[in-house]
């Protein structure tokens, strides 16, 4: 199996309002994929379907060759676009909770990242700033040795220096056969980290290509190309 993800004819509507239309997508192992699209284009819907939080109306999804279920959930590490941390816990408490819950949790990874970012492990989550909470969330998600990471807007709330650290962390921590899908608006920040780009707009797949191909074909950076395609 060289494919980690395979979607065929995926459709999803909310009360008749179409959110995803006939999405066909396959992602090879070891790639870092940027899931790009304007607000309301269906990025989060697609990610939630891959996690099993939403079910599609029609279509088939295979993750590592398997239908969505307990097995796929155990190999997918998902960073939601909202805060999921328990506000009353300490950072350490949150780390222990994750380590208990996920067998693939790598404590040494979490230790390194918490130390490098200078996060106070004794602090309660609710006393941390929004940006620091986002860092903790991302550390928890990236400390798992998962096969597929789904990161929904992972760097939106952090400062540029931390953004760089996080991107470097992603590059140095991911195993060469694990795959990362990052949904983001901050294209120019993540562009050079990506191997592939998937662009969706109003629920339709617009582009699915490698970053190098796209740059070669268009003579533009992904960021410039995005601005052109989605000009308001």
């Amino acid at each position: 199996m060289d494919k980690i993800l395979e979607c065929r004819g995926l459709n999803k509507a909310y009360n008749g309002f179409p959110a995803l239309n006939n999405i066909n997508l396959s992602v090879a192992k070891g790639r870092i994929v940027g899931l790009l699209g304007p607000n309301g284009s269906g990025k989060t819907t697609l990610i939630k379907i891959l996690t099993g939080l939403l079910t599609p109306n029609t279509g088939e999804i295979l993750i590592d060759g398997k239908q969505i279920g307990p097995e796929t959930k155990s190999i997918v590490s998902y960073l939601p676009d909202h805060n999921f941390l328990a506000p009353w816990r300490t950072v350490d408490g949150m780390v222990k909770y994750f380590a208990d819950f996920y067998t693939d949790f790598d404590m040494s990874r979490a230790d390194t990242m918490l130390d490098n970012l200078g996060i106070d492990r004794k602090a309660k989550i609710k006393t941390l700033s929004k940006g620091t909470q986002e860092k903790v969330a991302l550390i928890l998600i990236m400390s798992r040795r998962a096969k597929l990471y789904l990161l929904d807007e992972p760097i939106a709330g952090v400062d540029p220096a931390t953004r760089d650290y996080i991107l470097r962390t992603i590059l140095s921590n991911y195993d060469s056969d694990s795959t990362i899908i990052i949904s983001t608006h901050l294209i120019s920040d993540v562009e050079q980290v990506l191997s592939d780009v998937v662009m969706i707009n109003t629920g339709n797949l617009v582009v699915a290509d490698t970053v190098d191909n796209l740059r070669e074909k268009t003579g533009k950076s992904v960021d410039e190309y995005f601005r052109e395609v989605f000009r308001c």
Partner: peptide
Amino acid sequence: LAVEAGVNPNT
């Protein structure tokens, strides 16, 4: 090298 350059290892 990929980490130093800040690029994807595939690239």
